[in-house]
């Protein structure tokens, strides 16, 4: 059996409110994401999509169950170990883009180099920017870019280290239809090239290799 890019087994996560009752974000959730697959998490707000992505990214620990990425049990790593693993293996794309406001588009794409350096990163960043149609915007600050351009910069940043997995949290949530389709197209292309994509979205019109419907902390549907 091949090693899955992501493997979640019996994962549960409950948020303990300081004044309110505990909220179960995920309950006994299991999922397997193979390399080359485009997996979409669908569900309403608060159903645990972002929680799931944060746990797969090693930014949040499950209360129960196990999260493996490329065979690595994330719970077995220290915080710094998870950070290093994340830098090499996982790319993030967020709904709010999360670009650094004082860095140019090119420098934002190069931001992951702060965690893991390497030869040829600048050239790769420039190629990525060109491929995503931002060559004439490379020296602009995020505040000078449109929403679609910002998301493409964020996508280029996620791709810099050519990670095995891209986690995308509502990447089209703030985009017009044209930009949204462009971003989805890039993510699908990435999956076709062998990477795994795990994307959370409200959209119901997104075709995926695996569609996971979440509702109030539980998996409702899981089909290919």
């Amino acid at each position: 059996m091949n090693t899955a890019t992501v493997e979640l087994t019996g994962v549960s996560k409950t948020y303990q409110g300081s004044r309110s009752a505990a909220v179960a974000a995920l309950c006994d959730f299991s999922l397997r994401v193979e390399s080359g697959s485009f997996v979409v998490l669908q569900g309403p707000s608060g159903c645990g999509k972002t929680t799931l992505l944060l746990m797969v990214g090693g930014l949040l620990s499950p209360d129960q169950g196990m999260v493996r990425v490329r065979g690595q049990d994330l719970a077995a790593l220290s915080a710094e170990g998870r950070a290093a693993f994340r830098a090499r293996t996982i790319g993030f794309v967020f709904q709010q883009f999360h670009l650094i406001p004082y860095l140019t588009a090119l420098d934002n794409v190069l931001a992951p180099a702060l965690a893991v350096g390497g030869a040829g990163l600048r050239q790769r960043a420039e190629e990525s920017i060109t491929r995503l149609g931002l060559s004439d915007r490379r020296d602009h600050l995020p505040g000078e870019l449109s929403s679609g351009e910002r998301q493409r910069v964020a996508l280029a940043r996620a791709l810099l280290h050519q990670p095995a997995l891209i986690l995308a949290d509502e990447p089209t949530g703030n985009l017009d239809e044209e930009s949204a389709m462009a971003v989805l197209g890039h993510l699908r292309a990435y999956a076709r090239e062998g990477g795994a994509v795990l994307m959370a979205t409200h959209r119901t019109d997104v075709s995926a290799d695996v569609l996971v419907r979440l509702r109030s902390g539980a998996t409702v549907t899981d089909h290919e």
Binding site: A83, H98, A111, L114, A115, V116
Partner: peptide, 16 residues
Amino acid sequence: RGEIGILRALGVGQGA
């Protein structure tokens, strides 16, 4: 704060 969050998500360590 947001910048710190994204840098940490990108794998930048606490020391950095």
